[in-house]
């Protein structure tokens, strides 16, 4: 087990290192200086600015500098907003995205799991058909379409909820639902196929035969096994929710890190782009790492060869 954790940790670090290296060289492969797009600067000033951001050093020194800074969790300064550190930006905007993301994950689980159970329990009946229609719609309609439609019909037409912003719990409902819709459908499908498979197993028949009630069989015996793939999916789910926030935060004008990330792309603020990419990547790798470890611990069928 310890060996497995160590190995997984090593792979995560390796992946992170590759991402850092790739993004560093991608950013530096671009010709011209970052400031050439703006007004032409006098050479002396340009030299000064380059020296300030360490751009005058040879490439390998810059690379090592970036690596040591990142190891110290220092993401550098924004090139677009003078005097703002990327760390400050992340500290200010990430909590907003994180709360939206957490809310969505809760909604995904609260909506997706029951939907999947109901549909598996009534396989082939109308409940199953209805939930399968919802699921099919969920995985085919892109998040921004759900968001825009919800905004138009619920906020603009019916005036039930605020159109944009993220101030009160009322503001959170639409973005949360829009962000979780796709994954809710995905989880429902996952639970359904897992349940259908598990319900045909011999031990379920045995449990029924010895006189246990249907509820006990479903919740105590079947669900436990059907839920496992969902836990394995939590890592990709976190990644999906995170990138989903780019779009949802834009539609609802939520001041989260996703929206900031996208605007830094159009501002070509390279230090922010790189810093936030590395931050996101590290965050996701950590999530996937934790999920993998949990999965091995709770599923007794996985035997690690050592």
């Amino acid at each position: 087990m310890g060996y497995y954790i160590l190995k997984r940790f090593f792979y995560s670090l390796l992946s992170l290192f590759i991402i850092i290296t790739a993004s560093f060289f991608m950013m530096h492969a671009m010709p011209g200086s970052v400031y050439t797009a703006e007004k032409k600067l006098p050479p002396a000033i340009e030299e000064n600015i380059k020296a300030k951001y360490g751009l005058d050093k040879p490439l390998h020194e810059q690379y090592l500098l970036t690596l040591t800074n990142l190891a110290k969790l220092d993401f550098g300064m924004s090139m677009h907003n003078e005097g703002r550190g990327v760390n400050d930006i992340i500290e200010e905007h990430f909590p907003v995205s994180a709360s939206l993301g957490t809310l969505s994950i809760v909604l995904v689980l609260l909506g997706g799991v029951p939907l999947g159970i109901v549909s598996a329990m009534n396989k082939g009946k109308w409940q199953d058909n209805v939930s399968m229609v919802i699921v099919t719609l969920g995985v085919t309609v892109p998040g921004f379409v759900v968001a825009a439609l919800a905004q138009y019909f619920i906020s603009v037409k019916l005036k039930l909820l605020p159109v944009m912003g993220f101030d009160t719990p009322k503001h959170w409902i639409l973005p949360g639902v829009a962000l979780s819709f796709f994954y809710m459908a995905f989880i429902a499908r996952l639970i359904r196929s897992g349940m259908v498979e598990v319900l045909e197993q011999d031990y379920i028949r045995t449990a029924r035969a010895k006189g246990l009630s249907k509820a006990v069989v479903v919740y105590k015996h079947a669900l436990k096994n059907a839920v496992l793939p969902v836990i394995a999916f939590l890592g990709p789910l976190a990644a999906g929710i995170l990138t989903g926030t780019f779009v949802i935060e834009r539609v609802f004008s939520i001041p989260g890190l996703g929206r900031y990330f996208i605007s830094s792309i159009s501002n070509r603020d390279y230090t922010v782009i790189m810093g936030v990419t590395v931050f996101y990547a590290a965050f996701l790798l950590l999530m996937v790492f934790i999920v993998d470890i949990i999965y091995v611990i709770i599923d007794p069928r996985i035997k690690l060869k050592n």
Partner: peptide, 10 residues
């Protein structure tokens, strides 16, 4: 394990 969307955006 590299988040694809981030990579595509980059």
């Amino acid at each position: 394990s590299i988040p694809t969307t981030l990579y595509v955006i980059l």
